[in-house]
Design a protein around this nucleic acid. Structure first.
Lengths: 243, 243
DNA sequence: TGCGTCCATATTGCATACAATCCTGGCAGG
DNA sequence: CCTGCCAGGATTGTATGCAATATGGACGCA
């Protein structure tokens, strides 16, 4: 009887959802909503409501919320639940600083570990990005195609640093909603500068010069941060990384 | 009936445990066991067994395990569960490097934010530590009293960096079992050097010299790491921090 | 009117039942 | 002897019910 209800519910929401995917699904949905700014900061998110909306029970929703808490999207109080986290100017600045530190450190480490294949991949990514950037003046919408390539570029370097823990810290710091809105406000000169930064970073990595790579990475991120702070908000898709 | 069983169970294990503390309790117990090296690395930890041992249900145990996973104590595979994480030499080295980076960064930030009261507190801690260190030659057991003071010292600096996210990252990197076993193998000279480092860090902070503070912090941690790597294992209480 | 207290209700925390998945060991076939 | 497969058991993933707690509003009182 109880099992009947559960079974029916499971069938009703389609058979795509195998065991072990409800939590992941809840996580993805809630995270997307957060990145979409679906709720103002401070909003309380009751587990039951989310569960109903997503079509799963409270258990996987709780799991998802816990993950989002320690990724910094939400804040949690015992016996109260989760609220959407707000960010003061100072906190944003601090978070960015931290990211700067971690990602330039990753570049420094990467310079001592990157192999030729890695360098070639990075150069290939630069080629692709530049070929798009070249057309951005005429077709501004192409800026959005730049972002994923850029993300991959940075990811490759972080992976080359060969420190999984570091990678996960950077991910957790970068995932915070505030940091996620930049690339789109670059003007033409800034896009060009960004491309140059990328090439220079590759050169530094290829030369095995950690300090050089770290320095350019710092500059690169500072430039991005400045662009981000410059404008108002403007609608931005959930996946702009701002690097 | 069902509620009777649950109610009785709750009473049986004492009334200290109010609502909202089972997860915390499970977390503490499991974490202590991990720090005590109760299980060899790679050991699989079934939720049901832990739950039985601790006297709570699987739900809070799951919560505790998730926390320990993202603190790096355990690794988790879907549908399989949690295993005690093992550490290769390279991983230990990488983790230490990362910690070095974060904690020296914290010192640099702290130098620009620490107020006079903070400086006084740090100096007071140095006084206490030195008065103990002075007697360590005669009573080696006192080394253990040094550790908590040392922990507080470092914590104060991290807090002064005024970046909660940074603090939590450092905590997560420092909590990892491997990093937690040092202070006790310092010889007399090393204890003295450590004390000097502390004083110098305070001086740098007081002078508002971030780079100086960061540099001494780096040296301080390197010294600790070297001492840690030197010896074999030796029994170490769960709370030695190795700073 | 302002303030403290108490209670109703909403929501979380925990326990338990059930379903899906993985792993182990044995067995058949090559 | 080795390899692939399959079944059974162990373990995790999810759903649901109940207990405990916090929040907000009504009420009494000054």
């Amino acid at each position: 009887m109880k099992s009947d209800r559960a079974g029916r519910a499971a069938e009703e929401r389609g058979r795509k959802l195998k065991h072990g995917h409800a939590a992941r699904r809840a996580y993805t949905i809630i995270r997307d909503d957060l990145l979409r700014d679906a709720w103002p900061s401070g909003t309380h998110l009751p587990e039951a409501e989310l569960a109903r909306r997503i079509g799963v029970s409270r258990t996987p929703v709780r799991d998802a919320l816990r993950m989002l808490v320690n990724e910094g999207f939400l804040e949690y109080s015992a016996n109260v639940g989760c609220r959407v986290r707000g960010w003061s100017e100072d906190e944003i600045e601090s978070l960015f600083d931290l990211r700067l530190e971690l990602e330039s450190y990753a570049a420094r480490r990467a310079a001592q570990r990157m192999d030729d294949v890695g360098i070639q991949e990075l150069n290939a990514l630069c080629d692709q990005m530049e070929s798009i950037a070249f057309k951005v003046l005429d077709v501004p919408a192409l800026r959005d195609d730049l972002t994923p390539l850029n993300d991959v570029f940075h990811m490759r370097i972080i992976d080359a640093a060969a420190n999984p823990r570091l990678a996960s810290l950077i991910k957790s710091v970068t995932a915070a909603p505030i940091v996620l809105r930049t690339y789109r406000r670059y003007d033409a000169d800034e896009v060009a500068r960004s491309m140059n930064h990328h090439r220079e970073i590759v050169a530094a990595l290829d030369a095995g010069r950690g300090e050089w790579a770290a320095a350019v990475m710092r500059a690169h991120l500072h430039a991005g941060y400045t662009a981000m702070r410059r404008g108002g908000e403007g609608k931005v898709g959930p996946m702009s990384s701002g690097r």
